[in-house]
Design a protein around this nucleic acid. Structure first.
Length: 366
DNA sequence: CCCTCGATCAC
DNA sequence: CCTCATATCGAGGG
């Protein structure tokens, strides 16, 4: 396998940056994009915020009320999520990124990998020029900034893009991978979250250098075969996953917060039906069928419970989703006789493409 | 190999 | 005080 040159491009404080462009008056003030849960006027969490807000300690995931306290002496602007706006901007950004890639992979609404091995002929200097060009075009065309990392694989490129934010560019040539990774905390490795960090911390492992001191069998014992061997390689900057065009989605879900905690099906079902309808719409938009329906329940103690059912042949109707999710709710309430629900959700999975006439011909022909 | 369910991650 | 959406894994059962 020849050496690769992989770029990871990550939009800076994306949702808040979109809002700054949509309404330039708010530029310079702390901007906080919120997910309101609808329980009380203030309940919910911060989705994203700009750096003015971060300077006051605001972070993604903190309760909105806490953000308001942190920003009470400022002219902070609190905005509800405007998904359609961000999707529109994202489409343009991704189109721009794609135009610079031999192989393009969108990983989320605001991040993508670009394999540029062929067009740079393996030159990191050339890849750096491409990165600067991307940034400039993004600035000129969309008035947006991003952070970019370049490395010999997706893992190193992603860690690199995180190194200098916002607006950074970090190039890690193959010969520099080891010294780049060594001093970083293990939490910089994608896949190492709160739980994995805690496990490693108990073994006095906090940096990636320290992580290289543990054998792959030890890691596999601690984290399972898959995550264990991944971490062993990741610590050494080794990662084989190719940059590839995104696979089709395999599930759709909608989850919402109840107005008040309850275990009364009469109170839960209207919301559940709404969610089921919304999921059905999403299926229809994508011309997909499903084979499984899951009910997701988050209780008042924030524990999560799921119940699912798989049917023999693919379906796609709203009615089936509604009926099955209500059946699953009854089943769940029965199995948890004292549980009180806080949030409720519906998921469909086991998706398959509804075949149109042309596809059907291909199918028969094969 | 398929299904179910909880856990984890990261958005 | 604690959102929302998707993917993946491992265990357990069949």
């Amino acid at each position: 396998m020849p050496p690769r040159v992989v770029v990871h491009a990550d939009m800076d404080y994306f949702f808040a940056q979109c809002e700054e462009n949509a309404n330039p008056d708010i530029r310079g003030k702390p901007v906080v994009v919120c997910v309101y849960s609808g329980r009380t006027a203030e309940s919910g969490v911060v989705s994203t915020c700009n750096y003015e807000a971060r300077n006051h300690g605001v972070r993604a995931g903190i309760p909105i009320v806490r953000a308001k306290r942190l920003l009470e002496k400022t002219e902070a602007v609190f905005l509800p999520m405007n998904r359609p706006l961000y999707e529109n901007v994202s489409d343009k950004v991704m189109q721009l990124f794609r135009s610079y890639a031999d192989v393009f992979e969108k990983v989320s609404i605001d991040e993508a990998y670009l394999d540029v091995t062929a067009r740079t002929k393996g030159s990191y200097k050339e890849a750096e020029r491409i990165a600067l060009q991307i940034k400039e075009e993004l600035r000129n065309r969309e008035n947006l900034t991003c952070s970019i990392g370049i490395g010999p694989n997706k893992l190193v490129a992603k860690i690199a893009s995180d190194e200098r934010k916002p607006g950074g560019l970090t190039v890690v040539e193959p010969a520099r991978v080891e010294s780049f990774l060594a001093p970083l905390p293990v939490t910089r490795i994608p896949g190492v979250g709160r739980v994995a960090e805690e496990k490693l911390s108990k073994m006095e492992i906090r940096t990636i250098h320290e992580l290289t001191g543990i054998t792959s069998s030890q890691l596999m014992e601690l984290f399972g075969k898959s995550l264990g061997s991944y971490l062993h390689d990741a610590a050494r900057g080794k990662h084989q996953e190719p940059v590839k065009e995104g696979e089709p989605t395999t599930q759709f879900s909608r989850i919402a917060t109840l107005r008040q905690d309850t275990r009364d099906p009469g109170e839960i079902e209207p919301l559940l039906t709404e969610l089921a309808v919304s999921v059905a719409k999403k299926l229809e938009e994508n011309r997909m069928n499903f084979r499984s329906v899951s009910l997701i329940a988050i209780l008042d103690d924030l524990s999560t419970h799921t119940r699912s059912i798989t049917i023999d042949s693919p379906a796609n109707t709203e009615k089936v989703i509604v009926d099955l999710s209500q059946r699953l709710l009854a089943q769940l309430l029965q199995s948890l006789p004292t549980a009180t629900m806080r949030r409720i959700g519906v998921r469909v999975s086991g998706l398959s493409k509804k075949m149109g006439q042309t596809d059907m011909m291909k199918y028969i022909a094969s």
